[in-house]
Design a protein around this nucleic acid. Structure first.
Length: 424
RNA sequence: GUGGGUAUAGCUCAGCUGGUUAGAGUGCCAGGUUGUGGCCCUGGAGGUCGUGGGUUCGAACCCCAUUAUCCACCCCA
């Protein structure tokens, strides 16, 4: 406990007993995305701060109080990315992708940073898969993006997830709705909780998903965004719903979903799992038709989502979904004496070079200690090289599971052949 | 930012209403066989009881502060 320091608050070490799960999940995610025609984008971990204040919106909590922002040695304000969409949108714009063939699709698996108080399913450095689709505003587009998320979730073997969707309209219908909402809550101001009084000024839509019973009772009678959608937005939303049905994707409309990032328009959605603590949103996303223009481009509609890797893993764990474990070493070579050691070493080098997962003892410990260690590594086969083996150039491959032994000559090619025969 | 729980060995935890050398299990190292792991037996290393104050003759235990961690709110992936 006299450590110099621990990992920073809200960060996690992912070591050998966990990292294979990450590898597995990430490779499955990438495979699905690529099957849908998305290609990987790798963008900087930090960006100029204004990208986020503009893109995400400086009235949001994410920008207002959760960003890791610092001045670099050149006097520039830079920020560790709190989300992925703005960076990818910036990259597509800067590199002329949005002036090329559209729609353009991208996916990414990245770490993001938010200065929040950690709890279950919430870290300061967290990881997410994101996909973005630029340059199409049809309802089919929204449906495709939701299908990608749905495919990932079902193909990973997750069962108990529900999809909730809503439309928060375009800026025009949202402005009308906001007005109606404020008029409604104006009459109930005295009954609202403290935070909702603040929300009343900043973002009255947030009152709708307040958890306090008093506010919920009031909000139950509040006007709904869906009733204030303009004709185009309403048509778009109903088309999305129909397409989801056609695609066989079950969903429910939750008129109280709002999103915390300013750039969202029209369709918003969440995939929610109940077993993973209070932070049950495994995936959240929606349409953001205004973002590219905000960043200085022409008007390019877009849709995307973010999916939390840590939350995904905890859901997989909660549902008991099996994840394939990594292959153990095929062979451990133990030895006695200096000559034995020399052979163990050169044999091990040759075997690894030939593609065999082979280890040998590095510590010069007793044979018993070497075998104990071999056992702990999970090695399938054991080879002991002592004076006898050195002399006759033959040894015995011992199966660590059942103890059976097979004679082999101490030769890389024959050993490799014997191992592949014994291990299948 | 707000609220609640927790903090003793690498890990999981005991430790009585404060009482003198702080324990167990597990893991690690070694021995029991200078050529065979797992099981068993024996021994060893490893702790300023999160940190700093206070109360007391005496604090792992009580009080205060602080930090970390877990959970919830807020917000979001």
């Amino acid at each position: 406990m006299a450590l110099l320091t621990n990992s920073p608050r809200g960060t996690q070490d992912v070591l050998g007993d966990e990292s294979y799960k990450w590898r597995y999940v990430e490779s499955r995610l990438a495979e699905v995305c690529e099957r849908f025609g998305y290609r990987e984008a790798r963008v900087p971990t930090f960006e100029h701060t204004e990208l986020f204040t503009r893109g995400v919106g400086d009235t949001t909590d994410v920008v207002g109080k959760e960003m890791y922002t610092m001045i670099d040695k050149g006097g520039r304000s830079i920020t560790l990315r709190p989300e992925g969409t703005s960076g990818v949108a910036r990259a597509f714009l800067q590199n002329g992708i949005l002036s090329g063939a559209l729609p353009a699709r991208a996916y990414y698996i990245m770490s993001c940073f938010r200065y929040e108080k950690p709890q279950a399913g919430r870290l300061r450095e967290f990881h997410q898969l994101g996909i973005e689709l630029f340059g199409a505003d049809s309802p089919d587009t929204d449906c495709e993006v939701i299908r990608v998320a749905n495919t990932i979730i079902t193909e990973l073997g997750i069962r108990n997830v529900r999809l909730e969707i809503n439309s928060i309209g375009c800026p025009e219908c949202r402005a009308r709705y906001r007005k109606a909402l404020m008029a409604f809550f104006e009459n109930h101001k005295s009954e609202l909780c403290g935070t909702c009084l603040e929300r009343f000024e900043r973002n009255p839509m947030r009152i709708l998903d307040c958890k306090s019973p008093g506010c919920q009772a009031i909000a139950a009678a509040a006007p709904l965004m869906l009733d204030y959608l303009c004709g185009d937005c309403r048509e778009h939303f109903s088309q999305v719903g129909m397409l989801l049905k056609t695609a066989g994707i079950a969903y429910e409309i939750n008129p109280r979903i709002v999103r915390g990032l300013d750039y969202y328009t029209r369709t918003v959605f969440e995939f929610i799992h109940d077993a993973a603590g209070a932070q049950g949103t495994v995936c959240g996303g929606g349409r953001y038709d205004g973002l590219v223009e905000l960043l200085g481009g022409s008007s390019v509609p877009a849709v995307g989502f973010g999916m939390g890797i840590e939350r995904l893993l905890s859901v997989l764990d909660a549902e008991g979904v099996p994840i394939p474990e990594p292959e153990p070493p095929a062979l451990f070579i133990a030895y006695l004496g200096d000559k034995g050691k020399a052979i163990a070493r050169s044999l091990s080098f040759e075997l690894v070079g030939a593609g065999v997962r082979a280890l040998y003892d590095l510590c010069g410990r007793s044979l018993k200690a070497q075998l104990k260690y071999a056992d702990k590594t999970g090695a399938r086969m054991l080879l002991v090289i002592g004076d006898d083996e050195v002399e006759c150039g033959e040894g015995r491959l011992k199966d660590m599971r059942d103890g059976t032994e097979t004679p082999v000559s101490l030769d890389c090619v024959r050993l490799t052949a014997a191992l592949s025969k014994l291990l299948g």
